[in-house]
């Protein structure tokens, strides 16, 4: 009896090993190194330098960009989708070089025709408490404004109508629909906010108006580009964020119109997000041995 069990065990191990080898032979795999770049007008982003002009004519600088890329998928030439990673989302930060390189291993050999991802986090995944560790947790989007996480923080300054470098926070995430029928007495009145001369004319938005509904603003990006994955080879791809395109395209985004903060201005976020469809591009930079 004991010998029989031992024999069967050995047989099972042998078969398992054979099957494993067979699978490896059938599914040779390659690697993609996915870089993330941020450019303005075709040149690498130079932070904190006032040298850019957007479509609205705003002179501006960018200090930092932090954003989430999620739901990464690769599309084979036959239309089948490959999910290349178990990582649901990647945090990208212009100040953190290591965040701008993603390595995808054990990818099926073959020809591919597109890369897909979600800008930000999709509705199902974008939940408060998803990330507890920095820097991802620092991206939290307040619960009062819909919860979850910023899709992106793009911080900088623009030269406003008075010729001053005014800070802007081009922050994108869940939008809000405010209840305009709420009692006006619950709103903040301009006179309550600002009695000083230096802020004359400042009209704060109805910030304390109750929120009636939230609006999911994340969007899917499809970057059509042919590339190959070969066994033992590393294909280098690069996702380019063309920063200037956040401010042009379907809408000409004018900082003088929207001001420095837009987390509570769905109309402003909507403009940026609709422009966002043309913000990204995919480039094949090289293919080489994995060892290189």
């Amino acid at each position: 009896m004991y010998k029989s069990i031992l024999f069967l065990s050995l047989l099972f191990i042998w078969f398992s090993a054979c099957r494993s080898n067979h699978e490896n032979e059938q599914n040779p795999s390659g690697e993609i190194q996915l870089g993330i770049s941020h450019t303005v007008d075709g040149n690498p982003l130079a932070t904190d330098t006032l040298q850019y002009v957007n479509a609205a004519g705003n002179h501006y600088l960018v200090s930092e960009i932090q954003w989430f890329l999620s739901d990464l998928k690769l599309e084979r030439e036959d239309g089948k989708m490959v999910e290349p990673t178990d990582d649901m989302a990647y945090y990208i930060d212009t100040d953190l070089p290591e965040s701008r390189s993603i390595v995808l291993r054990n990818l099926p050999d073959g020809n591919y025709r597109a890369l897909h991802f979600t800008f930000g986090l999709n509705e199902e995944n974008n939940r408060s408490g998803l990330f507890v560790n920095p820097p991802e947790s620092f991206m939290f989007w307040p619960d009062y404004l819909g919860g979850g996480y910023h899709y992106m923080k793009l911080n900088g300054k623009w030269i406003n109508a008075d010729g001053l470098a005014e800070p802007f926070n081009f922050h994108l995430g869940i939008g809000q629909e405010y209840d305009s029928s709420a009692l006006k007495s619950s709103y903040i009145r301009p006179n309550d906010c600002c009695a000083a001369n230096h802020c004359e004319g400042y009209k704060p938005p109805s910030k304390m108006m109750p929120v009636r509904a939230f609006i999911q603003n994340s969007f899917e990006v499809t970057l059509s580009q042919n590339f190959v994955v070969r066994h033992g080879m590393k294909t280098k791809l690069e996702i380019e964020m063309k920063v200037e395109n956040w401010f042009r395209g379907k809408h000409v985004y004018d900082h003088n119109r929207w001001g420095g903060s837009i987390m509570q201005q769905q109309a402003a976020m909507k403009q940026g997000l609709e422009n966002g469809l043309d913000v990204f591009a995919l480039h094949v930079t090289s293919i080489s041995d994995v060892a290189k």
């Binding site: 408490g129 903060s261 837009i262």
Partner: peptide
């Protein structure tokens, strides 16, 4: 708390955290 965590409120949260930090 709402003021603490809204840009049009006191706008503390980007540097000083909140429920998510």
């Amino acid at each position: 708390y709402v003021l603490f965590t809204t840009e049009e409120g006191a706008d503390c949260f980007h540097c000083h955290g909140g429920g998510g930090n």
